[in-house]
Amino acid sequence: MLDALRHHLGLTGSKKGCDHGQCGACTVMVNGRRINACLTLACMHDGDEVTTIEGLGQPDALNPLQEAFVREDGFQCGYCTPGQICSATAMLQEISEGWPSHVTQDLEAGAELTPEEISERMSGNLCRCSAYPNIVEAIRVAAGKQA
């Protein structure tokens, strides 16, 4: 799917960092759920709704999460950023639906939007510039705004 997006549809917002599901730069949402576009085939998603970074906002019309990433400097080189933002978008939905994570104390209770929870849930998106603290902050800011 990643090559289909990048080479055939000209949608280069989804990045190829490893091509093997080891970095998260290609994260897109399929029917609202985040996946690694590099580890699936486009033909397996006939009829599915695929949302890439191109579907979330434009440079002159950023969505709140994108705005927060800019303001909190949640990136440096920017290569992992579309994946981070797609991932965070779906991740916030997962938290709102009560999904637990590896660091959630009580499996049956919902999770709070703590830095620890965000960090664990965003660990599938590597950032070598290490904007991690700023990414966490951007997500908190954006989530607070949405709430």
Binding site: G21, R34, I35, N36, L39, S87, P100, G124, N125
Partner: peptide, 18 residues
Amino acid sequence: PVLSRALLAGASGQLRNK
């Protein structure tokens, strides 16, 4: 719960979805 815990300890959110 051991099964939930094991799954949540594996891979990433993206990979677990797929």
